[in-house]
Design a protein around this nucleic acid. Structure first.
Length: 1007
RNA sequence: GCCCAGAUGGUGGAAUUGGUAGACACGAGGGACUUAAAAUCCCUUGACCAUUGCGGUCGUACGGGUUCGAGUCCCGUUCCGGGCACCA
């Protein structure tokens, strides 16, 4: 009886041994090179692990094990992103403390992870919701509060433009500067700031603490700001920009409105340029870098100062060569505003100006005649939601009554107020060039404003010409229509658009009409949430001024509350905590009812958002038990940064931006040793399965989103039911074949036939649809598995690991289909049977390996090594299958070969590798073996089989000696019997022979 | 609209710098073993034509091009996916 591949016994045995022997314990070791592998840590949801989760973990585990076999000291940790909304919502419903459910879920995750045989060092586990961890989240926040971002060392002299580097510095430097110089010499070029303030040293020194505190908020990296936020009434909290998709909340799909609120913010925008530049130094996929570049949205342009006049517009050219004196009311005398443009070359085509409705300038330029119309328009705009503005692009706007003076042409053009100009970008004011901007064009057509084409050959009768290509004309129309400055006037005619932009920038700069400016789309991150289950802010309020709780008192632990909802007075949930006040003198948290006493002050009621805890966790893994520092100097210096980071691409504009920002800040502080946290990033594709559907509204197609709530076996129906939670959807039926990408196509769903599955949608009392979905066995021979536990149970972890990797390239999304899993299971059984004879004894012996054996082995070593390096695991597994097939038919029993295979397969299938390694009389773990190297000498072929082409078409294949010269190859090919019919009646025109590649004979009929 | 990445058998997917398209696996069909089933093993499997045997034509989304030779390079088009989007 041959020895059976008993995966259950084997896997259980090695799980125990690994724990007992601390096989995956890792310690810093200066004598060895380090390698840091990291997975994006999971949020422990109630649904448990699904088959999509392990995909990335397996991929990184393979690499980690491979690196270890190559002699690297590999850090491969795991932990939990444990703060989050679902636990809190569950708590609201059931009254159970979120910590309790979170920890239960963590236990379940751990159990599932352990079954798959990962090489995690669990001694380094982190949970973002434990005080020893979030102490350092709070600490980092305080450091940001105590910092500002300086682009250059502070000096009173202005710095040159284009300076883009910079770093965080202690806020004390800023204070010292103000005391001495006020804002003299400070602008957006040398200090990151909310708005450009202007005050003198004397003014600063005369202000009280409250006023100074307010002013400093304009510079701190973590600051309290009154800003427009995404307010989600249904969730009762504000959301960050990346948490809002198409005007609704990413989680739950609830409407989001714009609201002005006082919130904690992080000045992420200060790091815009560095976040952009850093992308050039890291190995991430082009698409994710592109996404980040779009999100950061750098645009280089020109700011131009526009003076305001209250007299009617002059015709074009009139008033040229003069700087028109300002007329009208005294109030408007020196009124001006600044516009931002990336098309400085189009200054000659300006026919009107537009201000954003929210701009404070609107009020100042509006003339009494237009006051009523403007007020009405502003009212209309305010009544529109973000979502309405986003979907509905009809042209709206109103004339303000005032005119702007184009400094280049001297023309006066009307100033409009229109919602198509956004307050939050650039200066909130634009110059409109209808001929060359489609939005301005639509506006001009609607209000009957002139359109002046500036590019040769551009037809602007039907639409604008937006392309940045062509030769400039009409700039100016004639010499006297360009204002002279110091005897010089601008002329762009005949230049290309790119040259014209550069020339205009030079002119504007030279004559101080404005300045060259870089704008970024990246906004500061709103950093506070009105929730319970998050990190509390280590902040208290003394006379309305936020104060940092001393560093040595951290962490400030999340207080107990009796309910997790907002208070009756509308305070966030922490308002329910009775012990939530700061005793400044005794430095401790005390009962709130002591606030009236001296030295006792209220503590911040907001909590931090989800990304706070996940922004620097990779640093904490380096030194997880340190209570003196986030990470020790020694550990940080050894581990540096993450060499390989694996996770989903859905974090491109959230976590992957925030953690890069956070790391850069810590780098400025000297805590982190590398400017970029994640050197190489692999985005595993999603496995679309039953457990996680995401649907979107797009165009006329409707997609609906669901999260798996739970899986239950229904005794009556004799089948498993899967419960999903979704929002606002039609009752539809779901089927895996209807998933394309990560969306379900409703049209396809309607065509669904209920032969395999049935299900129904039930409206629950929250107005959400619950989908009950029944999955029937597709056939008796196939297991109907959706979670990794079932696969481990039926096939074993090694098969699961192989199969998930064999599905296709890691970065590609694919539907989960268990149909092919038998192939991997068969392979392992075949591999196993190489080692055992028919009596169940070890068959590997000391016989000499044949040349074929060695060739198979070394071909495999070469292929697997190269493929792992490229994360092409599917092809390395297929190479394994080929090798095992070959060795079986060769009846190879030689230990020379068989003792190497367990090492090669160990990264992929560690359990079977350990078992065979042990059977071969090794007494250490296969993890500590050495990765084999291949020897070319076994791969040398004496002959090669190549295709022989006639006129580029392969006609037959033949063997050529490996060292044949091209001439010999042609000679052999043309004299081969198969060649004769292709040569019959033909003459050879040309021959191409490339050793090792191809022989091609070009023939034509004989004349 | 702009930017990025794709499209290969019934299916998942292979294919170095252009050089025998379809590796490996699934599924399907046929066969062996078995009382039977499971498991295992062997053969066939891109399409079409021919077939006693040899063979031939077409074929990597579509249309062109470069080349002795194109899945691969260039130009244009269609479709799918991702990102950004009144961002001036």
């Amino acid at each position: 009886m041959a020895k059976e591949y008993n995966f259950r016994e084997i896997e259980q045995k090695w799980h125990q041994k690994w724990v007992a022997n601390k096989t995956y314990k890792v310690v810093e070791d200066e004598s060895r090179k380090k390698f840091y592998v990291l997975n994006m840590f999971p949020y422990p949801s109630g649904a448990g692990l699904h088959v999509g989760h392990p995909l990335g973990y397996i991929a990184s585990d393979i690499y980690a094990r491979y690196k270890r076999l190559q002699g690297f000291n590999v850090l491969n940790p795991m932990g939990y992103d444990a703060y989050g909304l679902p636990a809190e919502q569950y708590a609201i419903k059931t009254g159970q403390h979120p910590e309790k459910t979170t920890f239960q879920n963590i236990d379940r995750y751990r159990e599932q992870l352990d079954k798959i045989g990962f090489s995690f060092d669990w001694d380094r586990e982190v949970r973002t919701c434990t005080p020893d961890y979030y102490k350092w989240t709070q600490w980092a926040f305080q450091k940001m509060f105590k910092s500002f971002y300086s682009l250059t060392p502070l000096t009173p002299s202005p710095v040159s433009e284009g300076e883009t580097s910079g770093k965080a510095r202690p806020i004390e430097e800023m204070v010292a500067y103000f005391e001495k110089y006020g804002t003299e010499g400070l602008d957006a070029y040398n200090v990151a700031q909310g708005e450009e303030l202007s005050f003198t040293a004397d003014e600063w020194n005369s202000w009280d603490e409250k006023k100074q505190s307010d002013v400093l908020m304009n510079y701190r990296l973590a600051f309290m700001g009154e800003t427009m936020v995404n307010w989600c009434p249904a969730l009762g909290t504000v959301l960050a920009n990346d948490e809002v998709v198409n005007g609704v909340s990413e989680r739950g799909g609830y409407p989001v409105e714009q609201k002005k609120m006082r919130q904690w913010c992080l000045r992420v925008s200060a790091y815009s340029q560095r976040l952009l530049d850093g992308l050039e130094t890291i190995q991430w996929s082009e698409s994710i870098k592109e996404t980040q570049k779009n999100w950061i949205g750098r645009s280089e342009g020109t700011e131009v100062k526009i003076k305001v006049s209250l007299t009617p517009t002059l015709s074009r050219g009139e008033g040229a060569s003069v700087t028109p004196p300002l007329e009208g009311t005294g109030e408007a005398e020196d009124l001006s505003f600044t516009i931002f443009t990336t098309r400085a070359d189009t200054m000659f085509g300006v026919t009107f100006f537009v201000l954003a409705p929210e701009s404070e300038l609107v009020d100042m330029v509006t003339t009494p005649d237009q006051r009523k119309a403007v007020d009405e328009y502003i009212k209309y705009v305010k009544g529109r939601t973000e979502r309405e503005r986003m979907i509905d692009h009809t042209v709206t706007g109103v004339f303000s009554g005032a005119y702007g003076i184009n400094p280049i042409t001297g023309d006066k053009c009307p100033i409009y107020v229109a919602e198509y100009v956004l307050a939050g970008y650039g200066t909130g004011a634009i110059m409109a060039v209808p001929a060359h901007d489609s939005r301005d064009y639509a506006f001009a057509k609607h209000f009957n404003l002139p359109i002046i084409p500036l590019v040769e050959g551009a037809d602007v009768s039907e639409e604008s010409y937006d392309a940045k290509e062509g030769i400039v004309m009409n700039s100016p129309v004639s010499e006297d229509k360009s204002v002279k400055y110091d005897g010089e006037s601008l002329c762009l005619n005949g230049l290309t658009i790119k040259e014209a932009i550069a020339e205009t920038k030079r002119f504007v700069k030279a004559h101080k009409l404005g300045r060259v400016k870089v704008n970024f789309r990246l906004r500061d991150a709103i950093f506070s949430r009105q929730r319970y289950w998050g990190e509390p802010f280590p902040v208290y309020y003394k006379n309305g001024v936020p104060q940092m709780i001393p560093e040595e008192c951290l962490p400030i632990e999340l207080p107990q509350v009796d309910k997790f909802l907002p208070t009756e007075t509308g305070e966030p949930p922490l308002g329910n905590a009775s012990k939530w006040a700061w005793d400044e003198k005794n430095k401790k948290v005390v009962e709130k009812n002591l606030i009236d006493e001296v030295n006792v002050f209220p503590i911040e009621l907001y909590t931090m958002p989800g990304f706070a805890g996940s922004s620097a966790y990779y640093l904490r893994y380096m030194d997880p038990h340190n209570d003196e520092a986030l990470v020790s100097e020694k550990a940080a210096s050894y581990w540096q940064n993450v060499d390989l980071y694996v996770g989903g691409s859905e974090h491109a504009t959230g976590h992957l931006i925030y953690s890069r920002f956070w790391n850069k800040f810590l780098f400025d502080l000297g805590v982190s040793k590398k400017d970029e946290p994640f050197q190489k990033l692999i985005n595993q594709g999603m496995i679309q399965g039953w457990s996680s559907f995401v649907y979107r509204m797009r165009g006329t197609k409707m997609f609906i989103s669901f999260d798996l709530l739970e899986e239950r076996y229904d005794d009556a129906k004799k089948k498993s039911l899967y419960y999903y939670q979704g929002t606002e959807c039609d009752p539809v039926y779901a089927d895996i074949s209807m998933v394309s990408g990560n969306v379900l196509d409703v049209e396809k769903i309607r065509l669904w036939t209920p032969e395999f599955r049935d299900g129904e949608f039930i409206l629950n009392n929250n107005g959400q649809y619950i989908v009950s979905q029944a999955i029937e066995k597709m056939s008796k021979s196939k297991y109907n598995v959706v979670n990794p536990d079932d696969i481990c149970e039926n096939y074993g972890a090694d098969t699961l690991r192989l199969y998930e990797m064999f599905l296709g390239p890691i970065e590609q999304s694919k539907p989960w289909d268990v149909a092919g899993i038998d192939g991997c299971f068969r392979f392992l059984k075949k591999f196993w049977s190489l080692y055992w004879d028919k009596d169940g004894n070890l068959a590997a012996d000391d016989s000499e390996a044949t040349a074929d054996n060695m060739k198979t082995l070394h071909k495999l070593i070469k292929k697997v090594t190269a493929d792992i390096e490229e994360f092409s695991y599917n092809t390395s597994i297929s190479a394994f299958m080929v090798a095992v097939n070959e060795l079986s038919s060769q009846k190879c029993r030689s230990k020379q070969v068989l003792s190497v295979l367990p090492v090669l397969i160990a990264p992929f299938a560690p359990h079977i590798a350990e078992e065979l390694w042990e059977a071969l009389s090794n007494n250490t773990s296969v993890c500590d073996a050495q990765w084999p190297s291949f020897d070319e000498k076994y791969l040398v072929e004496s002959s090669v089989k190549l295709g022989v082409q006639f006129n580029g078409k392969v006609r037959f294949a033949m063997d050529f000696p490996a060292d044949a010269t091209p001439d010999q190859m042609v000679q052999m090919a043309t004299s081969a019997p198969e060649a004769q019919k292709h040569l019959d009646g033909m003459q050879i025109v040309k021959t191409i022979a490339i050793p090792g590649r191809i022989v091609n004979i070009v023939v034509k009929p004989q004349a």
